[in-house]
Amino acid sequence: MALSASKLKVGETHTARLVEDLKRTQIVQYAGASGDYNPLHTDEIFTTKVAGYPSVFAHGMLTMGMTGKMLTDYVGDARLTKYGVRFTSQVWPGDTLDSSATLKEIKDEGGQKIGVFDVSTKNQDGVEVVSGYAEARLDP
């Protein structure tokens, strides 16, 4: 499951589909689990009539959470040491998201190999919605 530094090549990419046709119900589910009940994510009347958006949209943290699944499926359980993102575009109900992690470098921290990855999640139009990085402990 875990990645081995000796078998990885800088520049290699892992990709995964995060979600197809994102459902409003999943956004509600994330609101309930995370405790972030901002009506921009679940309340169409507020979001369109008061806030002026075309529709409700996903929590950035939902996209970060789904992107996190791509990472942990790839690097292994409990292996992440850093994970950070910028939310570069909104994610709307109906979006289909694909995510990738590209190995940027392997560094050595006191004998522990650490993989540094560029992370990117894009929607069905190729627009990047999350741009970030992750670092994970690797086997030798």
């Binding site: 499951m1 875990a2 995060l18 979600v19 999943q26 589910q29 994330y30 309930g32 689990a33 995370s34 939902l62 959470g65 789904m66 996190g68 699944k69 990472l71 942990t72 499926d73 292994g76 359980d77 409990a78 292996r79 992440l80 994970y83």
Partner: peptide, 27 residues
């Protein structure tokens, strides 16, 4: 809610057999 069905987050027995050694929380 984030669509992650990895048993390391939900199944104590399965999680015990992973490197995590038990249930952990997602990142």
């Amino acid at each position: 809610s984030v669509g992650d069905e990895n048993p390391v987050y939900t199944d104590p027995e399965a999680a015990k057999k992973t490197e995590a050694g038990g249930i952990i929380a997602p990142p």
